[in-house]
């Protein structure tokens, strides 16, 4: 029997290879929604920067860090669906019979979701720069941004696993896709907090995505500050723990002998 690390590596390699055989769905699709948002919103709503109190004159610059964090939410889900297909096809039974650990199976799928988001994040960063975004915090900021993207993708992706494994329906995660809409509108993605209506300001405090957006801005356009970063990491890790604990439980129920 192989160790957990080797198992995760073998299974992740399998997932990535499969992604290459289905490249549009696996690697290109996560880019579509954020790219559309980026180009359309930045161009059609650019007048909002004229509002008093708006911190920049280039709306694309305001949107770039937020849209990059959005790729985490539009990019995950594929892995959860694949996991349910493995359960339904009996392939998961086969892997279990080869003594693959449930934790290795789950982690290899989660990591695939994370990897899948990276090309989307990189594409959006390039598009953002082309639209005039200044990367004021340089390489440190970019590295930090991608680390945060990975954390948020893993944390948010866990939700898809919970839904997929609880329903054991490969299509169920699709129903979760529109969740990114209220999360982005009830956050500071489009305008600064001070310009949000009161009730949205309140909602945004309870919306984890707000913290990702704020920290991403700090990392890309600056100024680089500790507080938004610390909050984002705390919220991200918190969501990750909650979704992973729930996903592990649903996975155990789905695969354990009953």
């Amino acid at each position: 029997m192989t160790g957990s690390f080797a198992q995760v590596r073998l299974l992740l390699a399998r997932n990535l290879r499969e992604g290459l055989r289905n490249p549009v769905l696996a690697y290109a699709l996560p880019i579509v929604i954020p790219l559309t948002m980026m180009v359309l919103v930045a161009k059609t709503l650019s007048v909002v920067t004229r509002l008093p109190g708006f911190p920049t004159t280039n709306y694309a610059e305001w949107m770039t860090p937020a849209i990059i964090m959005l790729t985490a939410m539009t990019g995950v889900g594929y892995a959860a669906t694949s996991l349910v297909i493995d359960i339904q096809s009996g392939f998961l039974d086969r892997l279990r019979l080869l003594n693959a650990k449930p934790s290795s199976l789950l982690l290899s799928r989660l990591l695939f979701d994370v990897v899948r988001v990276l090309p989307a994040g990189a594409t959006l960063l390039v598009v953002g720069v082309l639209l005039g975004t200044h990367v004021n915090e340089g390489v440190v900021g970019i590295v930090g941004l991608f680390a945060l993207l990975i954390l948020w993708a893993a944390a948010y992706g866990g939700l898809y696993f919970v839904v997929a494994l609880t329903t054991r329906n490969a299509q169920a995660p699709l129903a979760l896709a529109p969740l990114f809409l209220p999360l982005q509108f009830l956050s500071t993605q489009f305008v600064p907090r001070s310009l949000l209506p009161n009730w949205v300001q309140t909602a945004s405090v309870w919306n984890p995505f707000t913290y990702m957006v704020d920290a991403a801005r700090s990392l890309v356009t600056g100024p680089l500050e500790l507080e938004p970063l610390a909050k984002a990491i705390a919220v991200g890790v918190g969501v990750l723990i909650v979704t992973q604990l729930a996903a592990r439980r649903s996975f155990a129920r789905a695969v354990d002998a009953v």
Partner: peptide
């Protein structure tokens, strides 16, 4: 098992290699 449990997107060789390496 009763239904051939295969991964549609993996080749025959990859199936056998994965099983062998997991073992």
């Amino acid at each position: 098992l009763q239904d051939a449990a295969l991964d549609e997107l993996m080749t025959g060789r990859e199936h056998l290699v994965l099983a062998s390496r997991l073992s």
